[in-house]
């Protein structure tokens, strides 16, 4: 199987969907001539031309709202936010308009848009550029939220997102763009809302998504080697729709749960998960459900401290040992 980067996987998904459906249009700041701030869209302008790969001014509310409006007529805009952190200037378009138009029209209108871009900390870009809004987005019925951790997932999920008829918010990660992995050629489609067991285990379930999947796998490796503890890592991949069944099947095996997320704790994805797990599988649990999140403060700039503010393998390992104590 070909080995490509997460960045290339996203690019391939875009290129394949652009080739497949003439209604697909890529819009965003610096996506065309500059090849993308993170070079995700490199080569697409040359291949598909300026009608389909469109550089926008720095007007997120304007171009996202515009893409949404065009989607009502059947255009399928895939819009890049240079950082998801900039969603806040387009909040009204994203969460008032995109999330509600279908409902308010009594189902007469649908909005097949994708908004994609990175949402992560860990590169010392400070509080304004490090937001992880998956919980904020997912708290709005009407939208879908996807956070891929691997190149294969990124490709398969993005292709599904572009074909989806609802607004899909696709949260990537600047640190993962260079990550390599095996990705099948051609038309792989991973359904939104299907979790993936990234590592099988028997003693503890770590439920996680995004870059924390990699940290959790690293911690699981150490726990196996140094503590003889077998950890199962469940990658949610999609936050809404959410695959609770895969989570519950794992809990039934391990009876202990640690939720790991690069989020602030308050009303995070893990809070919702912990509630559902205890409701559905209370009798399966041998310990309270634990969470490991980003330390509850705005993102610090200072590079060595930011590493400790975010989940990392050592923090996950400590949290796992605490659940098993």
């Amino acid at each position: 199987m070909p080995v490509i980067t997460y960045r290339e996987a996203i690019r391939h998904a875009l290129a394949e969907e652009l080739a497949r459906d003439p209604n697909v249009v890529v819009l965003g700041e610096e996506v065309a001539q500059f090849h993308g701030a993170y070079k995700v869209t490199e080569g697409l302008l040359e291949k598909f031309g300026p009608q389909r790969i469109v550089d926008t001014p720095i007007s997120e509310a304007g171009f996202i709202g515009m893409g949404l409006g065009a989607s009502m007529l059947g255009v399928r805009p895939v819009m890049e936010l240079m950082f998801w952190s900039f969603y806040s200037v387009a909040f009204d378009q994203i969460l008032n308009n995109a999330a509600n138009v279908r409902y308010m029209s009594g189902g007469q209108i649908h909005c097949p848009i994708v908004i994609r871009g990175p949402a992560n900390g860990g590169t010392n870009v400070g509080a304004t550029h490090s937001h992880t809004p998956e919980n904020v987005l997912a708290s709005h019925p009407g939208v879908k939220v996807v956070v891929p951790a691997t190149p294969a997932d990124a490709k398969g999920l993005l292709k599904s997102a572009i074909r989806d008829n609802d607004p899909v918010f696709f949260l990537e990660n600047t640190i993962l763009y260079g990550l390599e992995g095996e990705v099948p050629d051609g038309d792989i489609l991973i359904p939104l809302g299907l979790a993936d067991v990234k590592r099988a285990g028997t003693d503890l379930t770590i439920v996680t998504y995004g870059r924390c999947v990699l940290h959790s796998l690293a911690a699981a490796e150490l726990l196996q080697k140094e503590h003889d503890i077998s950890v199962e890592v469940v990658d949610l991949r999609s936050i809404r729709p959410l695959d609770l069944d895969t989570v519950l099947a794992s809990v039934a095996k391990t009876h202990r749960v640690l939720v790991v997320e690069e989020q602030k704790p308050f009303c995070g994805v893990g809070a919702q998960l912990a509630y559902m797990i205890q409701r559905e599988a209370f009798d399966e649990l041998d310990a309270p459900i634990a969470r490991l999140c980003t330390v509850d403060a705005p993102a610090i700039y200072s590079p060595p401290v930011e590493i400790e503010q975010l989940p990392n393998p050592q923090r996950i390992l400590n949290a796992a040992l605490a659940v098993l104590a």
Binding site: I58, S85, F86, S88, V89, N124, V125, G126, A127, T128, H129, P298, I300, Y301, S302, V305
Partner: peptide
């Protein structure tokens, strides 16, 4: 205090209110 970084310099004592990372914000 190392919290803001390059984009977020401030000094209210000199009437300098930053240093803001979001374009136009």
């Amino acid at each position: 205090k190392g919290k803001g970084g390059s984009m977020h310099f401030f000094d209210p004592s000199r009437n300098y209110w930053g240093g803001h990372g979001i374009v136009g914000g």
